[in-house]
Design a protein around this nucleic acid. Structure first.
Length: 735
DNA sequence: CGTGGGCGGATTTTT
DNA sequence: TCCGCCCACG
């Protein structure tokens, strides 16, 4: 068979990896080195050259997006439907296994998946049920604890209190949580993985069956696997199936949620004779950007080792901007974006990256003021919105009356006279009889006041009736009917204004989502399949109209993306690297990897900015420039400094000795200092000025324009004052 | 049962 | 500073 179409588009290293002999294989794939291409071509190679039937291949990723992309590219590559291949996320595949083997897994056939929010609510409910102090046993932290145990493969019975009373209590909460999940048939995300791992371990013959079926297991982003995912893969692969894993230890940024970079090294130990390939040629960035990224990451210890190179030109230097404060930083970035657009660039080619979400606000304000369209990634996603979860709550209750979380969610939404008193009674009854709230409702209807009883009965009847109404309807009509008949639609319609309207639109969008939904698993009802889909696939991009806009996101969410123009903002010690990660080496190295990820997002031009002063949580703080800046070789950097210039002739530059500010990069002065045209030609924030009466100070705010503008100056001796531009006699201090 | 004010807490995020 | 949560009040 002619395989030239398969191999021609590959470079040497990629070709080596794709055609790797049938042995355990590890591909170290640097940023932008064509990792996905290698994975998809490997699948095609296995099918077309090694004659592996597509059904014998399992490909695992972390995100639905990556899974979708891989599936699409495999289909294009093979030119046949990829249905027989199992391509999915760890969670999606675990889910599929549990649906197929629910009995062996000890789950009810109708088990439901709960998302992180549901989980936290449930944990909170349990803590309350145990009459524990919620400020001491913080639900969020307890949920975290439970997930961390599950990620390590640990059940309560595996845990010892070690004589520690706190720990003992945490284990009890974990136990109580497990009981509750069991009673209601609920499965959280970590449980999907752990349960399917236990399936391998405890059901005789099952893992052998899958081992035989999947002769090849491919794993993407291997550096992100946690303990249980690694153990799961290892158990599946056994000694007869062949693993092909791709990852980059330098891009491991999820240690804090259980990811183990060590799994890469562990893989080499666990599978002797591993074929190791390195993809080091980068097709994304300029030489300068790569040199900087390489230099930064070289400061980490214990790397497997890898050095990116490119045949691309050196390109522009990395530009460093030292802002006076976060507003100045935002203004600079916005000006640069406008500049880019003026010169014909697309807004969507520009990305503003930052360490934490809170930083987006200032950028948003300035982009808004400059009327530059933007999009912030990382808000609530479609299926996480309250109104959507309410509607799904009804659907879930229809599918499973014992789903307490959904019961509580919708029992009084819209309000129908079932208040806290009634609910407390039901909870007590449910607790006493170890039954669900629904069962408690059926049982205690008589023990309530006539009024409460009739309200409650009306609700029980409503749910029963909805189930009947919906029985023979196609999925989207089921959803529509429930939204209407439950009163949810009317409830939001009452709320005049943007918010209610937006919620109604989202509910309509839910109906469309249901209309477009294609179940991929016929062991479930379409409704059950849709509900699982809604939890596992949180709906990124749902109902998002696409416009050419500036992209804003955290460094974490930028992983895997690329942009011609990138701004790495807020590069200050304490913010990035984050204060909470600075103390230990591991934490700091992860921050450094994050910096590496950020830098390697840039294709043509990288800007690095930091603010000398930053207002956070209402307090001003003064951070030193990020230590990562100093790790960039100075010859790659060019410091951008605003031209110190006054727009109005009224301001006479003060002819004193220039106040030298410390150079941006500590201990280095090689960064080329050049005055550029960034200042809009007026007094800028951070400008040192002198007033004949108040003395010297610093401009900290500017409002308005022209002679009507007001400026706020922080005077050394007099404190802050607002001054009218037109009247104040200010001298600019050259600095 | 719904709202407003006081309080505490405030990396990073997918599934 | 700002957001979300809880409780007290109308």
């Amino acid at each position: 068979m002619d395989v030239s179409h398969l191999l021609d588009p590959l470079n040497d290293a990629q070709r080596q990896a794709v055609t790797s002999p049938l042995a355990p294989t590890l591909v170290l794939a640097g940023a932008g080195s064509g990792k996905t291409r290698v994975l998809t071509h490997r699948v095609a190679w296995l099918v077309q050259v090694e004659n592996v039937p597509p059904g014998g291949i399992l490909a695992v990723t972390f995100t639905n997006k990556a899974a979708g992309e891989m599936r699409g590219r495999i289909e294009a590559q093979l030119d046949l439907p990829s249905a027989p291949l199992w391509v999915g996320t760890f969670h999606g595949i675990a889910h599929r296994l549990l649906r197929l083997h629910w009995r062996e897994a000890g789950l009810p056939q109708s088990f439901h998946i709960i998302d992180a929010e549901d989980q936290q609510r449930l944990v909170k409910k349990i803590i309350r049920g145990m009459e524990l102090d919620e400020s001491r046993w913080v639900p969020r932290e307890m949920a975290w604890f439970i997930n961390a145990q599950k990620d390590e493969g640990l059940r309560p019975r595996h845990l010892q209190d070690e004589g520690d009373l706190d720990r003992r209590q945490r284990i009890r909460i974990y136990e109580a949580y497990e009981d509750a999940c069991h009673r209601s048939g609920l499965v959280d995300f970590a449980e999907l993985l752990l349960r399917s791992y236990e399936l391998w371990k405890e059901v005789p013959g099952l893992v052998e069956h899958y081992r035989n079926r999947f002769a090849h297991t491919l794993v993407d982003e291997f550096q992100d696997t946690n303990t249980i995912q690694y153990a799961w893969m290892k158990a599946l692969v056994g000694s007869s199936s062949l693993p092909f894993v791709v990852g980059d230890d330098d891009q491991s940024i999820y240690r804090w949620r259980g990811a183990r970079v060590e799994n890469l090294q562990q893989f080499r130990r666990d599978f002797p004779g591993v074929q190791l390939h390195r993809l080091e040629q980068n097709y994304r960035s300029t030489g300068t950007i790569l040199a900087a990224a390489n230099a930064i990451i070289a400061n980490n210890s214990g790397r497997i080792g890898k050095k990116l190179w490119t045949s691309d030109e050196r390109g522009e230097p990395i530009r460093l901007y030292r802002a006076y404060n976060e507003r100045d930083e935002a203004e600079f970035v916005v000006n640069r974006v406008r500049n880019w657009v003026t010169r014909g660039g697309k807004r969507s080619d520009a990305a503003i990256l930052y360490r934490s979400n809170a930083q987006s606000r200032v950028f948003e304000e300035y982009l808004l003021a400059a009327r530059v369209p933007y999009r912030v990634y990382g808000g609530l996603r479609f299926f996480e919105r309250a109104e959507i979860k309410d509607a799904l709550g009804y659907m879930r209750l229809i599918a499973n009356r014992d789903d307490d979380a959904s019961f509580e969610r919708v029992v009084n939404l819209p309000t129908r006279g079932i208040g806290a008193r009634t609910l407390e009674l039901l909870r007590a009854h449910a607790r006493a009889n170890s039954c669900s709230l629904w069962q408690a409702g059926v049982a205690c209807a008589s023990g309530l006041s006539a009024r409460a009883a009739s309200c409650l009965n009306a609700f029980l009847d409503l749910i029963n009736r909805l189930e009947q109404d919906v029985l023979d309807l196609p999925l989207h009509e089921q959803v529509d009917h429930v939204i209407q008949a439950s009163g949810l639609a009317a409830h939001h319609k009452k709320d005049r204004g943007d918010r209610g309207e937006a919620r109604l639109e989202n509910l309509e969008e839910l109906v469309s989502a249901a209309r477009g939904f294609e179940p991929d698993d016929d062991s479930m009802t379409p409704l059950a399949a849709f509900l699982s889909h809604a939890v596992l696939e949180s709906g990124e991009g749902q109902a998002e109209e696409w416009e050419d806009c500036v992209q804003m996101m955290t460094l974490h969410s930028a992983k895997g993306l690329e942009f011609p123009l990138v701004f790495l903002c807020g590069m200050e010690d304490g913010l990035f690297p984050h204060q909470r990660s600075i103390a230990d080496v591991q934490g700091l190295e992860e921050e450094r990897r994050l910096c590496y990820v950020g830098a390697t997002r840039a294709m043509r031009q990288l800007f690095v900015t930091y603010a000398e002063q930053r207002r956070m949580h209402g307090v001003d703080s003064y951070g030193a420039p990020s230590r990562f800046i100093a790790e960039i070789p100075p010859e790659l950097l060019e410091e951008v400094r605003p031209r110190v210039q006054v727009s109005r002739p009224a301001y006479q530059p003060w002819r004193g000795r220039a106040q030298a500010r410390p150079t941006a990069v500590q201990g280095r002065s090689a960064a080329t200092q050049r005055f550029t045209d960034d200042a809009p030609g007026s007094l800028r924030l951070g400008q040192h000025v002198r007033h004949e009466k108040f003395g010297s100070g610093v401009v900290i705010n500017i409002e308005g324009q022209g002679s009507n503008a007001r400026i706020q100056v922080n005077f050394e001796r007099q404190g802050t004052k607002w001054l009218m531009m037109g009247y104040a006699k200010l001298d600019v201090v050259q600095n």
